[in-house]
Design a protein around this nucleic acid. Structure first.
Lengths: 146, 146
DNA sequence: GTCAGTGCAAACCCTTTGCAGAAAG
DNA sequence: CTTTCTGCAAAGGGTTTGCACTGAC
């Protein structure tokens, strides 16, 4: 049974990937499969450039345009999450469940914070006519100056 | 007495601006003064482009390079705060006191949330060797689909 | 055969930089 | 005078796009 999802911490099988794409209404192609395999190998935060590099690390699988287009598609379809943390590039998070992030400003490294470890006490009333999309919490860290 | 600061909600006078720059170790020039006047006229969130436009709305005061350089300088010196909210551009917040933001994803509009209206219940232990720089909370909103 | 997906290169846009000239003290 | 700041234009870097080609049903 193909019950792995992007929430699992075990690498999904090829058929899990196929199912995952299908469930989100995404046609599967060689390139999309490979990109999904890389993303969902484990919970991680990758830039488009890093994905491109890994996709083609063992042969030419996908072009830059396809990687960008595919990451955008996956994000729109809810398979992955765009993280806006750094003004110079976007990161893609292969975990979409509610959680937050440490961001090491010196290294550019991202690290998960479990949702239950960082709870918002009381959300203020939302402005008229708007509804909540999501709450992003970024805890910015720097190397400790001893 | 020039007691207005960027925390005030009353537009600071010219001499307040001069003092503010001096207190942050920034030499004052015609361009920097004008940019500061625009930023601190009221608490607001402006992109570099918006600042550029306003600076030159009544005559050529500063070039694009100067506006970018000055905003970067002000942010490094702590007069203003860089907001990373949108992958396409940086916003500068003329309020540096602790507070958070609503972000209307449809319109790109930013709105303040008072720090006391959105409290983090318990911060998880920070990773070894790191110290807190700051916590950014962005409440992303979309137009309500009625 | 049809239509969606892909690849390439060029375009884009925000931002940064190099360097010569201007301004401030 | 000397040093810092400014302006211009060009370069930079991540991302998007136009369009012809490919490939899957």
């Amino acid at each position: 049974m193909a019950e792995n999802t992007q929430h699992s911490h075990r690498p999904p099988s090829v058929s899990d990937i196929t199912d995952m794409l299908a469930q989100h209404g995404i046609a599967h192609t060689q390139q999309r499969n490979k990109i999904a395999q890389i993303l969902f190998a484990r919970p991680q935060h990758l830039s488009a450039d890093q994905v491109l590099e890994r996709v083609n690390s063992e042969g030419n699988i996908a072009s830059k345009a396809t990687v960008y287009n595919t990451l955008g598609l996956f994000a729109r379809k809810g398979l992955i999450r765009e993280l806006i943390v750094d003004s110079s590039k976007v990161f893609y998070d292969s975990s979409t469940h509610a959680h937050h992030h440490f961001y090491h400003v010196d290294t550019g490294e991202l690290q998960d914070i479990n949702a239950q470890d960082l709870v918002v006490q009381h959300l203020p009333d939302l402005p008229e006519g708007s509804e909540l999309e999501r709450i992003d919490i970024i805890v910015r860290l720097r190397a400790k100056a001893e």
